[in-house]
Every structure is written in structure tokens, then in C-alpha cells.
Write a protein that binds this DNA or RNA. Structure first.
Lengths: 203, 203
DNA sequence: GAGCCAATGTTGTCAGTGACTACTTGGGCG
DNA sequence: CGCCCAAGTAGTCACTGACAACATTGGCTC
């Protein structure tokens, strides 16, 4: 089955059915509800490993097993959330085209501040194809953002710089959120925007 | 009680006893054993959230509750391991003083390659004081490593650059291990050494 | 309009986990 | 020699992810 929230594609035999999704039941809405509720849970407790499928189900008011109709496993849910995260962050960066590397830093920092749990999920190891795919949209936006600052050099360098920029910004975020910079005076901590610019610019 | 593996310091009343640790029992050795076995487990399965205290205990041959005599909780164990990780990586960097930012990249990359689970632990959010402390040793070594490349500017800038270097190198590692760069051609991925140099050098 | 049938719920169950309480042990100190 | 107490053991609890089996819903086909 293929669904996007508005409709579902179903196969019966070798026929293909398209049908609108019901809205007044939990039917068809659950997947979205689960992701939304999970994000809320991640705001309450930013540790993704503390997120419980059963509690989510309880909160939404469905049976403990219902989530498994929409996600293969707990990890599958987490993947989906991370993917949504990348999509959103890409969209937010797209709105700020023209602000260069600073925008990359800004958008990422906002994410990490507002939804640290979501950010933690996006840092996570062993992501599957879904997240990798979604993160490409983000990477594409980073490329677009920094492109004017790099002049028209070769496109490969552009991508390399974009990844470097992403990595650097993400790195500071990880250090920050990890408490690894706790106790250090503020002026000893590089601003992520400054770092992003530094990575992008130059020969 | 204070212990370092060779001896223990015990207080009885207001006296202090120092005594050698027995070696033929698990006594006194368990803490170290646990950390070691946990690292092995993290090599088998790099996902820290999959590490089970009970399985560790089983593997070592002690009761399921024995670990709690040495660590307050599972997280406490993970913290201790992360701290050890930072200590080791600091030591390894110290051996390569004079190689500049490249050494930082090299050492960190080796860690992430050889013990990705350990690395994941060191990236983790919400670290307590113990890890923050240990990571300071690492940061100090990074400062020492990049110092010759920066000339003798102001020391604050030096620290900022060191943190930036750390963040950048760590960022690429996270992206890599997260599978976020999967499918990208190699020449599109910035080398962490190059990135480190770029962050450190310049005006 | 009847009924099929896939999607999507629900109930029941299992093994495994972190953490707690209460006990036992054993070796060095006085 | 006897006590003390750090460090180990046994038993238990609530909770979790995952699975199997069953119930229900509503659109499509005929």
C-alpha cells in the first residue's frame, strides 16, 4: 500500500485502487498522529531511546499494537520522524535562500534548540534509506544556500563545502547538546554561523 | 570507597584503610571488567541503547545485580565508558603532537572506525560531569596539536578554533556513521583532515 | 445491494530489561 | 578472634518491543 495522508493506493489482484482517506476515525490518521505525538514526547524527554511505543498508543487512545500497523518497529517510527525532521529543516532553509551559510547555521540551531530530541534522532547512527533520502533534500538546500558565496567554482567542490558546512554546524550542536562544552565561557565557544562561514569561504 | 584497580581506600569510623585488591576473585576487578566487556559488546553491536547490563553480567559470570555495586545505573556505566573513550583518544592524540589538525582528524577517525559504538557514546546527548571532565583532557590536546599552526594569536581564539576543529571532525564522523552520506560519490565527501585544516587555519 | 477482502484496529501473550529490596559472604582491621 | 561492611546473590516488579490470532470497517466488484 502507498499512502500520503490524502489518499491510499491499494492493489487487489492486478487492479489498482485509489481511495480517499477517512478522517473522522483514527483510520488513516494514525500514522500522522503517531509521528506528531512522538515529537511531543521527544520535547518532554529529548532522549529518543526513552520513547515508548506503548505510551504513545496509550496517549492517542489506541491499542498498544496499533502502531505496528503503520511502522515495522520502534526504530522504523524513529526513522520516519527523523525523515520528517530533515524535510522540515530543508523547507525552512529554502525560505531563507540568499542568506548564505549563516542561514544553514541558524536553521540548524533553531532545530536543536526547539526540538533537541528530534535533532538527536537526526544525528543518530545507522539510518536507513528513508532518512538518507530526506537528508538529500536538506543537503540540496545547503548547496543552494552557500552557492552564491562560493562563486562559480566546480560543482563538486560546492557539494564538498556544503557537506563540510553541515558537518561543522551539526558538530557544534552535538557538542553543545551533549554537555561537552558545559562550564566553558561563552566567548570560548565558536558560533556555528562563524564556523559555517569559515568552512564555506576561502580559496 | 575509592579504588583504582590496584588498591582500595576504605573508611571505618574516622580511620582510612588502604588495602591491596584481591585478584583471584571478581572482587574489585568487576568495575573494570564491566567496562571492558561493555566495549566488546559495543563492538559487536555499536548501538549503545542495545547494551544490556544483565547480558554483561551473564557474560562475566556474576549475578544480574552485581553491576549495580559499581554503577548507579545503566547510564552511569555508559558515562564511564564514554569518559574512558575521551581519555584514550586524548592519550592517542598526545602521541602525535606536532602533526597539527591532521592528527586530530586521524585520531578521531580511527576511533570512529575501530569502535563506532564507543564513538556513538561519546556523541551522545546529556552527558554528565564525568564525561565533560574527561573531554577537557581531549580538548586540551587538540589545543596543543593545532597551536603551532595558528602562530601565537590570542589564546581564546586558539580554544575557539580547537572546538571548531573538534566539532567539524566529529560532524563528518556523525554524518558518515549515520549513513547520511551513503550513496554519495567519495570525491563529494570532504576529508575530515582537510576540513580540520580549513577550520583551524586562516586569518 | 450483497458480500468479499484488504486495511486497520484489538486482545492476549512472551521473553527480556532496568531497578529495587532483602539476604549472604568473606577477608582485613582492630 | 570476632566484627564490620564492601561486594556479591536471590527474588521481584513494572515496563517494554514484538508477535500471533481475532474483530471490524468500508470501498469495490459483481
Amino acid at each position: 500500500m502507498i499512502a500520503n495522508g490524502m489518499w491510499t493506493l491499494t492493489t487487489s489482484g492486478d487492479r489498482v485502487h485509489i481511495r480517499a482517506m477517512p478522517t473522522h476515525y483514527h483510520h488513516g490518521d494514525l500514522r500522522r498522529r503517531l509521528i506528531g505525538e512522538a515529537r511531543l514526547a521527544l520535547i518532554r524527554d529529548p532522549d529518543p531511546s526513552a520513547l515508548s511505543l506503548r505510551e504513545l498508543a496509550r496517549r492517542i487512545g489506541v491499542s498498544q499494537n496499533a502502531p505496528y500497523r503503520h511502522f515495522l518497529s520502534r526504530d522504523d517510527l524513529l526513522e520516519a520522524i527523523a525523515a520528517v525532521g530533515y524535510e522540515e529543516v530543508a523547507a525552512r532553509l529554502a525560505e531563507r535562500s540568499g542568506e548564505g551559510a549563516d542561514a544553514v547555521a541558524l536553521v540548524w540551531e533553531q532545530l536543536a534548540t526547539r526540538e533537541p530530541g528530534l535533532a538527536a534522532l537526526m544525528f543518530r547512527a545507522n539510518h536507513g534509506g528513508e532518512v538518507a533520502m530526506a537528508s538529500r533534500a536538506w543537503l540540496a538546500e545547503v548547496v543552494r544556500a552557500i552557492e552564491p558565496q562560493l562563486g562559480d567554482g566546480d560543482p563538486e567542490r560546492l557539494v564538498r563545502r556544503a557537506i563540510g558546512c553541515w558537518a561543522a554546524v551539526m558538530g557544534v550542536t552535538v557538542l553543545h547538546r551533549g554537555g561537552l562544552l558545559a562550564g566553558l565561557d561563552d566567548w570560548l565557544i565558536p558560533g556555528s554561523a562563524e564556523l559555517a562561514r569559515r568552512v564555506v569561504s576561502g580559496h
